[in-house]
Design a protein around this nucleic acid. Sequence first.
DNA 1: GTTTCGGGAATTTGATCAAATTTCTTGAAC
DNA 2: GTTCAAGAAATTTGATCAAATTCCCGAAAC
Lengths: 219, 219
Amino acid sequence: MDDETRKIPSHEVTYGRLRDMILFGRLEPGQPVTIQGLVRDLDAGMTPVREAIRRLTAEGALLPQGNRRVAVPNLTPALLEQLAFVRLTVEPKLAELAGAALTPALIERLDGIDGAVDAAIKGGRVSDYLESNHAFHFALYEASGAPLLVDIARSLWLRFGPSLRVVCARYGATALPDRHEEALAAMRAGDAKALARAIENDIQQGIDQIRQAQEAGEI
Amino acid sequence: MDDETRKIPSHEVTYGRLRDMILFGRLEPGQPVTIQGLVRDLDAGMTPVREAIRRLTAEGALLPQGNRRVAVPNLTPALLEQLAFVRLTVEPKLAELAGAALTPALIERLDGIDGAVDAAIKGGRVSDYLESNHAFHFALYEASGAPLLVDIARSLWLRFGPSLRVVCARYGATALPDRHEEALAAMRAGDAKALARAIENDIQQGIDQIRQAQEAGEI
DNA sequence: GTTTCGGGAATTTGATCAAATTTCTTGAAC
DNA sequence: GTTCAAGAAATTTGATCAAATTCCCGAAAC
């Protein structure tokens, strides 16, 4: 393991682990995050853990409480509305930009990832769904050549993750948004505008589900 | 100074100082930022400096080089385009939301800040212009009640700061964007849409100036 | 041009201090 | 005698620092 891990610093690894814990809902909204707890769980030193927490706090994935603790933020209706506004602006734009730069090889890869999404939905495996759905979107977005927009999208997904997991766990993975076929068809047709609309629909569907869960008092 | 500074942790103070150094252009684009340099300059310990750097890196205000250094990023034309897209989406929205929540007292305060902006322009004091222009925009934005959008706007301004300073220093502070009168008139008329348009124009003007400087090879 | 070596910077650890939370105790009121 | 509350001790957690280690970069030697 030396050749692999020597190059990549511990604080990077720790950041990645903690980020994925949040992104894929392994931490619940409202749950407190302690430095010493992560030192134990992630088997890392104190400084790397502190830095990972600071980074994720700056990205909005963690929220500082009044006392000097941090916790996974709850997604209030007001926050969801703001999140929806930016996601529905930035992510269709990313899709449109990516649409102009797609290669057959990338479309093939996206098709493969979508297969994993479908399989996860059919099998009711929530974790697999969350991870491959994320992979699908960001493999597409990264083809856009717009790293700043991708950064913003990442930050927004981080704020979304915990609540999405709760909704999935509640309603099962069967009725989850999957407009990916629509998106893949637009890619094959070389229609960037249609691709943007498909992604927009996909996002809108996910947001609506969370909104419904909020209105029902589920989260 | 004990009663004041005791409550607010050193890493917060250090973060604020470094952030303002970037935001108000006291660090030039491309300039490397070292931990030990900041330990000397800011008279802080190593841990607070490290955390400040990580936070600002996560916000896009600093860019990690391949080796383990960080530097103030250069604003390339491609980045400026992405920045412009998001700023022109988010900030007019913030203005519109704020427009619906304005009080006469806040309008008065904004009028006062705008006076400082004007005075700085007339006096050719670039630093004062940058600080009071920032104060004007964010005093308005914070009235929106949309903290997530404000966060995003902050991050975007951080990426903008260094280059804006260079442009100001180059062309003097006389031809700087100031559509604030337009904005104040819209506030007094209670016209949120017009306020949003005024802010949009203000931003567009600033972006155009940087774009021109880029095309002229000035930065 | 390639390799090796040394200086300097970043990373990491562990210890120590400070703040906050929880628990326990004690005393008064009912 | 029981209950409640205020306060103090103990525990947990965060903040900071200094030393040791690792790593990168450039200069000198080959």
